[in-house]
Computed example of a mutant assay.
Amino acid sequence: MLKEELRHTHFPYCIQRQEDGTYVFTNRNYKPIGFMTGGWVNYDDSPIGVKISELTPTLAARLDHKGRDNLDRIYLYGDSCVPTADQKYMDAYLGRLGILMKLRIAD
């Protein structure tokens, strides 16, 4: 279980679309942000899904660290560009977070 850096549990790594169209923001352990468990987490058990009104394939490509336009899973960073490993990677991650924070929650 990755716990040595706050990034592993409390910062977004992946945005995953659920069957109902909502998105769950997961940490590096694929748990909802802040969850520090090695056990299975059923996303439906907690009110953690959110509808994002402005998310398009073009925007997904701006958010994804590899520029992929996949709306099902958007990776904000990857194993080859860990934000805490290099200032260039941190700047790129923070830029993606800046885009993400401006998005609105759909009604």
Rank of each mutant, 00 (worst) to 15 (best):
G67M: 05
D44T: 15
R73Y: 10
A61Y: 04
P32E: 00
P32A: 00
D72W: 05
I105V: 15
R68C: 09
R62C: 06
V82M: 10
A85Y: 05
P57F: 10
M1N: 07
T58I: 10
R7H: 06
K66V: 15
G21W: 04
P12S: 04
V50G: 01
D20C: 11
E5S: 13
Y23R: 02
P47L: 08
M101W: 03
G78K: 08
D91I: 11
F25Q: 03
L103H: 05
V41R: 06
G21S: 13
I74E: 03
G95F: 11
V50R: 01
E19K: 15
I33P: 00
K66C: 14
Y30S: 12
T37W: 13
M101K: 13
D44K: 14
A92F: 05
L59W: 01
G21K: 08
L2T: 07
G78Q: 06
K88G: 14
I33M: 03
M36R: 15
L97V: 11
H65L: 07
R17T: 00
I48D: 01
G98F: 10
I105L: 09
H65W: 08
F11V: 01
Y75H: 10
D20T: 08
I74C: 05
L103W: 03
L59N: 01
C81Y: 09
R104H: 15
K102P: 06
M1E: 08
D79P: 09
Q18A: 03
L97M: 14
D91Q: 12
Y89C: 13
H10N: 00
D86W: 11
I15H: 00
P57E: 08
T58A: 14
T9K: 06
D64G: 08
M90L: 14
L100R: 00
D44Q: 14
T84F: 10
R7E: 03
T9S: 13
G49W: 04
R68P: 03
D72V: 08
I15N: 01
A60C: 02
Y43M: 13
A61H: 10
M101E: 12
P83K: 09
L59T: 07
F25P: 02
G49P: 04
R17L: 03
V82D: 07
I52C: 02
H65N: 12
V41G: 08
M36A: 14
I48C: 10
L103F: 06
L100G: 01
R68E: 11
N42S: 14
L94V: 12
Y13K: 13
Y13G: 06
H65I: 12
M101Q: 05
H65K: 09
A92D: 15
D91T: 12
V50L: 04
M1H: 09
Q87A: 13
T22N: 06
L100Y: 01
V82W: 07
Y43N: 05
S46P: 01
Q87H: 07
A106I: 05
I99W: 01
D86H: 13
D91M: 09
K31M: 09
R17E: 00
I48A: 04
D107N: 15
I74A: 00
F11N: 04
L6S: 10
P83N: 13
I15R: 00
S46V: 11
K66Q: 15
K51Y: 05
M90S: 07
Q87C: 08
L76N: 02
P83H: 10
I52N: 00
K31R: 15
